[in-house]
Amino acid sequence: MHTTSTRLLKLATVMLAAGLFTGCATQNRAYDYSAFKQSRPRSILVLPPLNQSPDVNATASMLAQMTYPLAESGYYVLPVALVSETFKNNGLHNAGEIHEVSTAKLREIFGADAALYVAVTRYGATYTVFDSSAVVSATGKLVDLKSGTTLWEGSATASNSEGGNNNQGGLVGLLVAAVVKQIMNNVTDASHPVAGITSQRLLVAGRPNGMLYGPRSPNYEKD
C-alpha cells in the first residue's frame, strides 16, 4: 500500500511539473506574424463588435474607442460613421449580421485591406462585499479582405479596480467605499472609460503578441 501511494505521489508530481512547464511555454510562445507581414495591410475596416455581455452599451462603447489606437499605430481606419451608414443602407443593422458578410463583399464595398472583428466578452460591474468593479474584456481578429486569411488574433481586459484597494479606514472604511463605488457604477456608465483601456491594450501596436505597426508609423517594419 505504501509503495503504491509513493508511486502515485511521484506520478502526480511529474504530471504537475509537466503541466506547469507546458503552461509557461504556451504563455511565452511568440505570435507567428508571417501572414501579417506578407499581407502588409494599410487600411482597416472596423466592424461593430459582437456583444457577448448582458449590457446593451457594450457594442457602442467599444466601437467608439477602437479607431484611435489603430490610427496611432499607423493605419488608415475607415470612418466609423460612414461605415455604419453604409451597412444600414444595405439592410444590415446589427453586428451579428455584419460579421456574417463575406470578406470579398466587404472588400468590394469598402476597398479596405483588412477588417477587424471584435467580440466584447465582458462589460459591466461586478460586486463583492468590499468592492465594486467595472470590467471590460474583449477579443479581436484582423482578417485580410483579399484572401480571407487571419492575420492576427488577441485578447485584452481592464478593470477600474486595478492597483488594489489602499483604503486605510479599516472594515467600516472598506464598506463605505464599496457602497459609494457601487452607486457610482450604477448611476454612470463606469465601464465606458474601462472599455477605452481595453481597446488600447487590445489594438495598440508594440505590445507583446499584439498588433504590428502600420505604414504610417515611424516604427513600421521594425518589429
Rank of each mutant, 00 (worst) to 15 (best):
F110Y: 04
R29Q: 14
E85G: 00
G91H: 11
N167E: 13
N57W: 02
P54A: 06
A119K: 11
P215H: 02
A60P: 00
G23H: 11
G91F: 10
L174C: 00
Y75D: 04
V180H: 08
A205R: 01
Y76L: 08
L174W: 06
L16Q: 01
T86W: 00
S102E: 09
A125I: 05
S199H: 07
A114C: 06
G74H: 03
E153F: 02
A64T: 11
A190M: 10
V179Y: 09
S191R: 07
T6S: 11
L116R: 05
S61Y: 03
T4C: 02
S5N: 12
G206S: 10
S132E: 09
T6V: 15
K146G: 14
G111M: 03
D131S: 15
M66A: 02
F87M: 14
E72Q: 12
A114N: 03
I98K: 08
L20D: 01
S217F: 02
V204I: 15
Y117K: 12
R201H: 12
H2T: 14
V187M: 09
H99C: 06
S217W: 01
T157Y: 09
G111K: 06
L145I: 05
S159M: 04
V14H: 04
L174P: 00
G74E: 03
H2N: 13
T13I: 14
V14L: 13
Q200M: 12
A58D: 05
Y123W: 05
N28R: 14
N28C: 08
L11F: 11
